[in-house]
Nucleic acid binder design. Sequence first.
DNA 1: ACCTGAACACCGTTCAAGT
DNA 2: ACCTGAACACCGTTCAAGT
Lengths: 210, 210
Amino acid sequence: MARKTTAERRRQVSQIVLGIIAEQGIEGVSMEAVARAAGIVPSALYRHYAGKDEMILAALNSFIDELETRMRALGPRPAAEVLAGMLAVQAEIMPLQLAIPQILFSPASKDQRELHRQAVKNLQDRILGGIAEVVQRGQAEGQFSPDIDPLAAAHLFMGLLVIVTLRWYVVGAAYDAAAMKKEGWRILELALGSAKSRSGAGRKGRRRKE
Amino acid sequence: MARKTTAERRRQVSQIVLGIIAEQGIEGVSMEAVARAAGIVPSALYRHYAGKDEMILAALNSFIDELETRMRALGPRPAAEVLAGMLAVQAEIMPLQLAIPQILFSPASKDQRELHRQAVKNLQDRILGGIAEVVQRGQAEGQFSPDIDPLAAAHLFMGLLVIVTLRWYVVGAAYDAAAMKKEGWRILELALGSAKSRSGAGRKGRRRKE
DNA sequence: ACCTGAACACCGTTCAAGT
DNA sequence: ACCTGAACACCGTTCAAGT
């Protein structure tokens, strides 16, 4: 009943997986649960995916696709604003972010582990690269110090996201993730702009932080 | 053969677990492998541990114990030096660091998940608290800016460690973890000292761009 | 008190057979 | 081409029985 083409099925399943992760966390994702939600039987999923992990990775990639278009919609705002925007968006992403280590350390067959690593690397590349790009633009526009390695700055930024997510997961409701992101970002912004504020502050007259 | 008291066995097993993680990564840790190395049978481990995850957590805690004493040995050096020292030490810790998400996201019985979360929280608390303490000392000694939240700074620092570890795991040998840590730390140090350097910026006149 | 060996439980995966 | 149902595989875990 309700046979679907592979493309359709994968689209549907990605939505289901993202939904389960958002509601119950990554632990809720089992082949049985996903198949049931899709109205098929677990083994049928293997016509469309190489395995569980590829299924989850596909869902994450489709999510990042969506995220990138949303990010692009922020358009040509100042780099610092874009980064702050990422921090804000991240609140809703935290459960999904947790899926990445899950995949990375799932007890998969040794044959597939290399594939997972490669897939997670691609995810990281996309995120890290996107952040570094924004930093670079900030430098080009004179907002950030030019003598900072954009990739290293992206590491710090992404590290903040990851740590806050891990802490939120572990500490629970008592953890004020938003406040920690805000203060962490304030410190990081200090560094990004610091060397530049030292050099000649010629013509940038925007709002200045005290 | 070779019956041991629980205390002895746990000590031995912790060493075995840490060894396996260091050599083969967390994936190599199975009840079978650990038991074999200990010269007993898998089910015998359950006399000494509630389960696999408690076993790994015990090993990690014993490792952090050792690490703390090593850190204390650094004594009253300047705070910035101590932090840089942590970064250096971290190279050998990376495989162990990877064990934490593994435990956190292991498909354990729902009953035990709360215990794991609590245990990982304790690990995080110890690490994060230790870093924040050093930052605070740096502030007290006038090395770091006083208007920075030590805990947020610790987040950024730990975030750097975590990201570098994840990237190293995913990218492999092509990834220059040391360089990224170095540059990341340089940026972070900029922020930690920036507010202060504003008041007394006097001694460095580096090359200027363009 | 510590250990063994067999059996169980859970879940991802395979495979022959259906439409 | 997509799906089903039964069986398998792997590994953490339990339990009765040994010393």
